[in-house]
């Protein structure tokens, strides 16, 4: 397999796509849809569910003492000012903690400013400009403000959309739907326009020809998805940054989804199309058949998590990635196996 030869075939297909208004229109429409829709959903959802940030209550702290800077374990602090210190395990009450780290501490009725919080419980507190570990920290009746990391409470409603991958899902749908529409032109198109015979008589191997066809669809689809991804996340980030105070996207889940899952889903779309193309002789039939495969793949991605009661997170995507990789390898191997020059030439009669 000479990849350069495959690329020659792909470039020819790309020139043909450029000259085909229908394909261009489809690609443009999909890209714009994909670039704008997630942003509109996130921004409008945020606007609808946004509540004014709660006022910081006046805690009326009674500070009686200042604790010297240092590292403390099993603390019992009441009515103290702690600065530049580290506390692990214990209780803090009615105190003012600044520029410190707390770990496994129960804090009640206190003000925490620029504090890193881990595995702790905060009750009736004000947490200001701080970083807290959302997985291990319990906030009860606690007001957060400033540049606290992790989605602020007022945007909790957004998390299903973002972390449960509902929006990411749109990219998966595009990654499989786009190839099924344009790959049909690329392969069945050669058949219906009877351009295949001179091509098959040229010194190209089966795999060069097939990989050319794969690349011709894969490259533009992935470029457009990447473009749509950059545009939509940029819009979301620009819109959300002032209220969130941090950059929402891309997070690890989105990166995994875009960099690993979309290419695999795209390859599934193309290879199924190539398989169908070898048995079908017109573009519309090929498109109809291949739209059928959108259903099972999308069901796996969308309904799977619901049935298993898990979220579309790193683990789920990683597992799907491995499964899809296997599916892609199998389909590509199959498409090479069923590619039969003689059938293609003689079946159209």
């Amino acid at each position: 397999m000479r990849i350069k030869k495959a690329w020659i075939v792909a470039r020819k297909d790309l020139s043909e796509f450029r000259a085909n208004k229908q394909i261009l229109l489809q690609l443009a429409a999909f890209t714009i849809l994909l670039a704008v829709t997630p942003a509109i959903i996130v921004v409008s959802f945020a606007a609808l569910t946004a509540q004014p940030p709660p006022n910081e209550p006046n805690l009326n702290l009674q500070i009686n003492a200042t604790i010297p800077e240092g590292e403390y374990a099993n603390v019992h602090f009441l009515g103290v000012y702690v600065n530049n210190s580290t506390m692990s395990t214990g209780y803090v009450l009615n105190s003012y903690v600044a520029n410190s780290t707390i770990d496994e501490v129960v804090v009640r009725h206190s003000l925490l400013d620029n504090v890193t919080v881990r595995e702790s419980i905060l009750i009736d507190c004000v947490l200001r400009n701080s970083d807290y570990d959302r997985g291990s920290t319990i906030l009860m009746n606690t007001v957060t403000s400033g540049t606290t990391r992790g989605p602020a409470d007022e945007f909790r409603a957004l998390t299903p959309l973002l972390t449960h991958g509902v929006l990411l899902f749109m990219f998966f749908v595009m990654a499989i739907a786009l190839p099924t529409t344009i790959a049909a032109y690329s392969f069945v198109g050669e058949k219906t326009n009877k351009t295949l015979e001179p091509l098959l008589a040229s010194p190209l191997t089966d795999s060069e020809l097939l990989w050319g066809k794969y690349l011709a669809v894969f490259v533009p689809v992935m470029l457009l998805i990447a473009l749509a991804f950059v545009i939509s996340t940029t819009i979301i980030d620009i819109a959300m940054f002032p209220t969130l105070g941090y950059i929402l996207l891309p997070d690890a889940v989105w990166l995994l989804g875009i960099l690993v899952i979309t290419p695999l889903v795209c390859l599934i779309g193309i290879s199924v199309n190539v398989l169908i193309s070898s048995k079908v002789n017109d573009v519309r039939t090929a498109q109809q058949y291949s739209s059928l495969i959108v259903f099972p793949v999308m069901s796996a991605l969308f309904l799977g998590p619901s049935f298993l009661s898990i979220t579309i997170g790193i683990e789920f995507l990683a597992i799907m990635g491995v499964i899809f990789l296997g599916v892609v390898a199998l389909l590509i191997w199959l498409s090479l196996r069923v590619f039969n020059r003689e059938d293609i030439l003689t079946s159209r009669k």
Binding site: S15, E16, N193, K194, T195, L196, E197, P198, L199, A201
Partner: peptide, 15 residues
């Protein structure tokens, strides 16, 4: 080694 002209010209019309 050879050049082939098939029954249909098989040119890419849009190019």
């Amino acid at each position: 080694l050879f050049g082939l002209l098939p029954e249909n010209p098989g040119l890419y019309d849009s190019l």
